[in-house]
Design a protein around this nucleic acid. Sequence first.
DNA 1: CAAATATGGTTGCGAATCGAAACTTAACGT
DNA 2: ACGTTAAGTTTCGATTCGCAACCATATTTG
Lengths: 165, 165
Amino acid sequence: MGIREPLGELGCGLSHALEVMGERWSFLILRAAFNGLYHFEEFSEELGIARNILSNRLGKLVENGVLERTPCETDRRKVEYRLTEKGLGLLPAMLALRQWGETYSDTCNRDLVLVDCRDGQPVKQIGVRAHDDRELGWHELGWQMPDKIGTPVDRHSHAYTKEDA
Amino acid sequence: MGIREPLGELGCGLSHALEVMGERWSFLILRAAFNGLYHFEEFSEELGIARNILSNRLGKLVENGVLERTPCETDRRKVEYRLTEKGLGLLPAMLALRQWGETYSDTCNRDLVLVDCRDGQPVKQIGVRAHDDRELGWHELGWQMPDKIGTPVDRHSHAYTKEDA
DNA sequence: CAAATATGGTTGCGAATCGAAACTTAACGT
DNA sequence: ACGTTAAGTTTCGATTCGCAACCATATTTG
């Protein structure tokens, strides 16, 4: 029956990431946190999310170490949700998603550009880089076992199968 | 009532990306597609996802231009789902998520490393880069209006508010 | 050709999750 | 003391999910 298998059994880090961030609203809450929102009511108002869901998601993000929950010193009704280091580590993933969305949506808002605040120049499109900084496409990539690193991979010689994972 | 507001009203490209990829399983289907799976039964077996949900997700991914659905030439019972250019464009986002998951999960599988298949060297950690390739953290970034690009941004001089968006 | 099998779904139904609004609890502010 | 604000919790109906069974078509087998 409808019991949700944790998804974490699917092996790779992606599954873990999705367990933490894969629910509706999680990424938008994160975006709001990146944009400097701290309080429950701020998230609620900004996102228009139902309060019970917001409560649940914030709890889960805290539980998973993405946000830190601290009662406010000056006003003890308030609670502050702040990004942890782990949460900040999601910036590349979030930005990559955003850039992808911007590239392929014709309706989304492009009024603000993410820039290097030192010089005001836009950041680069996020991509996959080799150790020597070359940009790599999917066809230039392959999976290798940790003990065989450094051995070139004959990509596309075989399709992916369970045995590979 | 539980009617799902499209989320797309939240402005930026992230909302659009989440509308396309934000549902449970979507990213794992994509990962499977990147790993060379083409057919309904392959996805079904690999992921253990319910068939109706798989059908629905594949349909949505096709509808959104991430996958292309083509009946197989040689066996017309079969259907091939292949990544489009738009779908391939999700590689950085997916990899960033995976890397994040690997960094912060202690249980996930690290038996395979993504490498540059030319030389077998692992790819770099995905990050945000300035136009001159410096790596940037969140505190070095700011939002700028398109017509003011090139003007340094005084980050953190003000918190994010609705007016900024 | 008929029957069996493979592939890619669709349908029905119960369980889990989501969403909106009302309610609760505790802390300020005056 | 009284109203207000902040952060949730509860309630309840709507939606979605997961499982199993069923269906439609194409291919293989006898």
